[in-house]
């Protein structure tokens, strides 16, 4: 347990515990509702915000938050009210935001280490402010999930029937996207924008293979996220590998082993 004497590892592991809950819960809903591309879209769109914040000299997460909120709610609005599909709107916004980020960065003189840590993740750079943000997100998400879990289930299982019941299902959808954004921003320092989708998808996909019902899906999703994140962080310390890449590779191996044991086609498509 030599790694526990280092502050950066203590912070990373503490963040990992909180993020496991957030990621596991959100991943369950993302995989159940086929929102993986939305998650990937929001995380990549936040790159433009990160670049703008670095250029302006403000906290990068603030820029990412503004861009992610704008992107998440725009995509949701477009998909709910327009003839343009969700995938198309994500594709347009991702390429626009990435292009904007690249142009903005061309104005930045010198080494942009800050931005690289957000792109590829770096547990060395987790600050007390980041910890506070992650804690706040976990508490907020925990309360919302506790209060609205059944409503989110209805949204995921059959949104149209929810509308007929006169439930405000569109509002639940916006709320779920807000929680996805909180999770993405909490994960950025550990996995980076580039690898983030893996953690949004793999816990939910793994739990789907193992679970017998939706309660087990949620439980196994959180447990899978917890084991992969904590073990990944420790492995990355001993192997001297980047944390995000180690966690994603470990998660993929765990998923692959389970799918080989359980059989890929067992649950249909």
């Amino acid at each position: 347990m030599e790694f526990m004497q280092y502050t950066f590892m203590q912070r990373a592991l503490a963040a990992g515990v909180l993020i496991s809950f957030l990621t596991g819960m959100v991943s369950f809903f993302i995989t159940s509702k086929n929102l993986a591309f939305l998650g990937e879209g929001i995380s990549h769109i936040s790159f433009g915000g990160l670049a703008l914040a670095v250029l302006l000299g403000i906290h990068p997460l603030l820029g990412a938050l503004v861009f992610a909120l704008f992107a998440g709610f725009s995509i949701a609005r477009i998909s709910l009210n327009s003839r343009i599909s969700e995938d198309t709107s994500i594709g347009i916004l991702v390429s626009f935001s990435m292009a904007l980020g690249i142009i903005l960065l061309s104005y930045k003189k010198g080494y942009t280490s800050d931005l690289l840590s957000f792109l590829f993740g770096s547990i060395l750079t987790i600050t007390p402010a980041d910890m506070l943000f992650i804690l706040g997100s976990a508490v907020l998400a925990g309360s919302v999930f506790y209060r609205y879990f059944n409503q989110f289930l209805m949204l995921v299982f059959d949104r149209e029937y929810g509308r007929i019941m006169r439930l405000p299902v569109d509002r639940y959808y916006y709320l779920l996207i807000f929680l996805i954004i909180c999770t993405i921003l909490s994960l950025i320092k550990i996995t980076g924008v580039v690898l983030l989708t893996g953690l949004l998808v793999l816990p939910g996909a793994t739990s789907y293979l193992l679970a017998r019902n939706y309660r087990e899906q949620v439980l196994f999703s959180i447990l899978t996220a917890f084991i992969n994140i904590m073990l990944g962080l420790v492995l990355s310390y001993y192997l001297n590998w980047p944390s995000g890449a180690t966690i994603v590779i470990l998660s993929t191996i765990v998923f692959s082993v389970i799918i080989m044991i359980k059989g890929a086609g067992k649950r249909g498509k």
């Binding site: 509702k33 086929n34 995921v156 299982f157 059959d158 149209e160 789907y208 019902n213 939706y214 087990e216």
Partner: peptide, 14 residues
């Protein structure tokens, strides 16, 4: 009816 999720393991009673 494509609304019903094909990834949610929901028992009939639920």
């Amino acid at each position: 009816y494509s609304e019903i999720s094909q990834r949610l393991l929901l028992p009939v009673s639920d």
